[in-house]
């Protein structure tokens, strides 16, 4: 059995150990210190609801209480140049076929078709539009861009049997018009795509029906967007008034080669 004096070293060591623990508890290490941060910045929740698909123009545009009710056709378009000869592809109702559909709109006074501008106002309107066209520069820069290398030049071909009727020059003209309007997004993923757009033209150079695209039903949003950009170029080119008559009524397929273009930038 150890004597009382034998325990002194152990007691001293124990006291020192307790003191060390106490000091450690009271003095925080620099790396473990917390700092005073400002208020938190919470993320507020936002809920989203899908709006229903727009109703066809023929459906009755009855007023509905829901804020996201489907769109209904508005009053007929104004007598601008293109509206005087609407094509079958236009979804907007014509005044002759659906006049009664316009009447029951929720706010008929505000949504009634705008008062036709007096004839003398068209000059001002045209001036406004000209100004806008210049301001946006939508077409000017495109027109200045032509094929800069042989492998980037537009190419046109016909199937056997109609090449005599449709000259290569005519198709090159069509391709040139479309390349002036085609605005692909080369930065989008999946840009190495060729979008085939098929359409027909009437004798007036307008679209005979809606253009169809090989990627119209793509599940990839980038491909879908690429498809819509190609189709938009075709719509925007309407009317194709400077083409030879032999091209009208033909099934025209345009290959918008996004990979070729984007890789050549």
């Amino acid at each position: 059995m150890a004597s009382r004096t034998d325990r002194y070293p152990a007691l001293a060591a124990s006291a020192l150990l307790h003191a060390a623990v106490l000091i450690a508890a009271l003095v925080a290490w620099p790396w473990s210190q917390t700092i005073h941060m400002g208020d938190v910045v919470p993320v507020t929740l936002i809920s989203a609801a899908q709006a229903p698909a727009p109703a066809p123009a023929e459906q009755a545009p009855a007023p509905q209480p829901a804020a996201t009710k489907a769109p209904v056709p508005r009053a007929p378009p104004q007598p601008a140049a293109r509206e005087q000869a609407p094509t079958p592809a236009l979804a907007a109702p014509s005044p002759k076929t659906h006049p009664q559909k316009v009447a029951p709109q929720p706010t008929p006074a505000a949504k009634a078709k705008p008062t036709p501008a007096p004839s003398e106002d068209w000059t001002a309107l045209a001036a406004t539009l000209t100004h806008q066209s210049q301001a946006t520069g939508a077409h000017s820069s495109a027109a200045q861009r032509g094929p800069s290398r042989a492998n980037q030049a537009v190419q046109a071909r016909t199937t056997t049997g109609v090449s005599n009727a449709i000259s290569a020059a005519a198709m090159t003209s069509l391709a040139g018009e479309l390349q002036r309007l085609w605005n692909p997004n080369c930065d989008a993923p999946g840009g190495d795509v060729t979008v085939k757009v098929t359409f027909k033209l009437t004798e007036s150079g307008r679209l005979d029906g809606s253009p169809s695209s090989s990627q119209a039903n793509a599940s990839d949003p980038a491909l879908k967007a690429a498809s819509e950009r190609a189709v938009r170029a075709v719509y925007e080119g309407e009317p194709f008034s400077d083409l030879p008559p032999a091209l009208y009524g033909q099934n025209i397929t345009v290959n918008f080669n996004q990979k070729t273009y984007c890789s050549s930038r």
Binding site: T136, G137, A138, S141, A142, R145, G146, P147, N151, Q152, A153, V154, Q155, A156, R157, T158, T159, T160, G161, V162, A165, I166, M171, L174, A175, L178, Q179, R180, L181, W182, N183, P184, C186, A233, L247, G249, Q250, N251, I252, T253, V254, N255, F256, N257, Q258, T260, Y261, S264, R265
Partner: peptide, 20 residues
């Protein structure tokens, strides 16, 4: 049918500009 045969056009150029 021959008269309505497909016409194929390749477009390898475009314009890169912001969408209005």
């Amino acid at each position: 049918a021959l008269a309505r045969a497909d016409v194929t056009v390749d477009v390898n150029q475009g314009v890169l500009q912001p969408m209005p």
